[in-house]
Simulated assay, not measured.
Amino acid sequence: MNTSQRLENALSKLYNAFHNNTLNPECCLQCAVGNICNNTDSWKHFSDLHGSLQLNYVGLVHQRLGRLVNGFTPQQLLEIEATFLKGCGFSIPLNRKGTKPKNPTSKETLFKGLCAVVEYLCALDNIENVMDYKKIFETEEQLKMNFTTLYT
């Protein structure tokens, strides 16, 4: 499967963050986008609220100028972060009154968010979800049926 360099880099950073326990949805440096952006928080200035999909003035300027941060537009970065937060069980944008998981940094919570982000990143690059495990469990009979359906 051919993947883009930006997807390879993003997946590698997210994988390392997950396994090194440096993935934290409530921290702009250690969230999904914070890790993709090399643990910087410069991306947070594209929006007024963490988890918002609305670009602010700074974000709109960068978006309209065609600027990319590690291969992603400002709008894509906001969408990646919103996907991660929702996958972890947060209501977006983050605020004190919104819903949040009981343990935001548990491996289970982070894995759910990570799966959502990986699916979104793959969709951005028009490739199959690299974490789709269903094909592993296809039986030989199902594969024959799929092959027969394709060529009849």
Results as ranks from 00 to 15, higher is better:
Q54D: 15
E140W: 03
G59T: 03
E81D: 12
T73K: 11
G98C: 10
N103I: 11
L11Y: 08
F84E: 04
E81V: 03
L121I: 05
L11W: 07
I127P: 00
E79F: 01
S47P: 02
A82T: 11
L29C: 08
L53E: 15
L85R: 08
L23Q: 08
T99I: 02
F46L: 03
V61D: 13
A116K: 11
I80C: 06
F18C: 04
Q75R: 14
W43I: 05
N126V: 03
N95F: 02
F72N: 09
L78R: 10
T3P: 00
N9C: 04
L143N: 13
T148R: 08
V130Q: 14
Q75D: 09
E140M: 05
L78I: 05
E81Q: 15
K86Y: 00
K86N: 10
H45M: 10
F18W: 05
G59H: 10
C37E: 12
Y133H: 11
E128C: 01
C28Y: 03
N20H: 12
S12M: 09
K107F: 06
K13I: 00
S106W: 09
M1K: 12
A32E: 01
S12Q: 13
T83A: 03
N95Q: 07
G59S: 09
T40M: 06
A123W: 01
K107H: 09
L143H: 08
H19T: 08
C37T: 14
L85W: 07
K44I: 13
E108F: 02
N129A: 03
L150M: 11
E119K: 15
L94R: 14
G87W: 04
L94V: 09
S91D: 15
E81N: 15
E81F: 04
L143Q: 14
F18P: 00
N24S: 10
F72P: 08
N20A: 12
D41I: 02
H19E: 07
S106A: 15
L14Y: 04
C37Q: 11
K13Q: 11
G66H: 06
T149L: 14
Q30T: 12
